[in-house]
Amino acid sequence: MWIFTAGNTTRHATQYRVNRVFVAGDAAHVHVPAGGQGVNVGMQDAVNLAWKLAAEAKGRVTPLITHGAASYDRERRPVARLLSCNTQAQTALMTAFTPEGAALRDLMSTLLGRPETNERLANLLSGLSVSYDNPDAAHPLDGHRAPDLRLSDGETLLRRLRIDRFLLLDFTPSEEFAALGSPAVQVASAEPWSGPAAALIRPDGYIARAWTVADVDQARAALTDWVSA
């Protein structure tokens, strides 16, 4: 027999990094185990941190990653705040036995009958809706999770990802971005995707930068924000 208790304590760390010490998963956030979100968020913490540590170990890390907009703390702490809010909301739904609580559950039951509501909640609970804000974003796709696109050699984007390098997807017919490959950046030709001419994919599958036009010089300059030669 498995016996356990779960409380409704909800809090998260005020800092995810102090010098050489990092916190992730249950060490970074605690909450009601509603929807199993702790596992999803904890795994995303680990992957987000892993590729940044790999960049440090390879000597390729940049200020943007260590303490800028793409730092571990700046990206993952807002996710914990959202996690705290939605698990507390679920707690109210499950434990409020007042007439107001019953009315709230009835309302949510009605909303859950709509496919768009189910899809939004599913993406929220799974963590698939997470995106990272970037004040310097120049394209609507910047900071969003990349779809598992088909590459020209038949492989898929997610299978091509490596923890220690970026993936530059070239959607141009003439492979104009091929010259930007390096030990830190693998370039792959991909089947046309509506919108960008190229997209730089982070090791964790998020879009670092996307470009609408095939401007190789602009892409080369942007790479210096993410990868130190």
Score class of each variant (00 low, 15 high):
70 A>M: 15
48 N>R: 09
46 A>R: 00
52 K>E: 03
51 W>S: 00
61 V>T: 14
50 A>M: 07
45 D>T: 03
53 L>T: 10
54 A>P: 06
38 G>V: 07
61 V>Y: 00
41 V>A: 12
62 T>P: 05
46 A>G: 09
66 T>H: 05
63 P>F: 11
57 A>N: 13
64 L>F: 11
53 L>H: 11
51 W>M: 01
69 A>T: 14
68 G>K: 00
62 T>V: 11
37 Q>I: 02
57 A>K: 15
43 M>A: 12
48 N>P: 07
45 D>C: 02
43 M>C: 11
64 L>Q: 09
48 N>A: 09
54 A>T: 05
68 G>I: 05
41 V>M: 09
64 L>H: 06
38 G>A: 09
45 D>H: 04
64 L>T: 14
70 A>I: 03
58 K>Y: 08
53 L>C: 06
49 L>I: 03
41 V>N: 12
57 A>W: 15
56 E>N: 09
48 N>S: 13
63 P>A: 13
64 L>W: 09
37 Q>M: 11
43 M>T: 11
60 R>D: 03
65 I>Y: 07
44 Q>K: 11
67 H>D: 15
37 Q>H: 00
62 T>K: 04
39 V>H: 05
47 V>Q: 12
54 A>V: 03
65 I>L: 15
45 D>W: 05
54 A>K: 08
41 V>G: 05
61 V>S: 15
48 N>M: 06
46 A>N: 04
68 G>R: 01
43 M>N: 07
39 V>C: 12
38 G>L: 06
47 V>S: 08
55 A>W: 04
63 P>S: 14
38 G>W: 07
61 V>A: 15
49 L>W: 04
54 A>G: 03
67 H>Y: 12
59 G>I: 08
39 V>R: 12
51 W>N: 00
41 V>D: 06
61 V>C: 10
59 G>Q: 10
67 H>C: 14
43 M>S: 10
56 E>F: 12
49 L>S: 04
45 D>P: 02
42 G>N: 05
52 K>F: 02
64 L>N: 01
54 A>I: 01
58 K>D: 15
46 A>H: 01
42 G>F: 06
61 V>H: 10
63 P>H: 09
40 N>L: 05
45 D>A: 03
45 D>R: 02
44 Q>P: 00
50 A>H: 10
62 T>W: 07
53 L>I: 14
51 W>Y: 13
65 I>D: 01
41 V>L: 13
44 Q>Y: 02
59 G>P: 06
40 N>H: 10
37 Q>S: 03
58 K>P: 00
45 D>V: 03
47 V>P: 00
68 G>W: 00
62 T>Y: 06
40 N>V: 05
60 R>I: 00
41 V>I: 13
63 P>R: 11
60 R>L: 08
52 K>W: 03
38 G>D: 10
47 V>C: 05
58 K>A: 14
46 A>Q: 08
67 H>T: 15
52 K>N: 01
58 K>I: 00
70 A>V: 07
39 V>G: 06
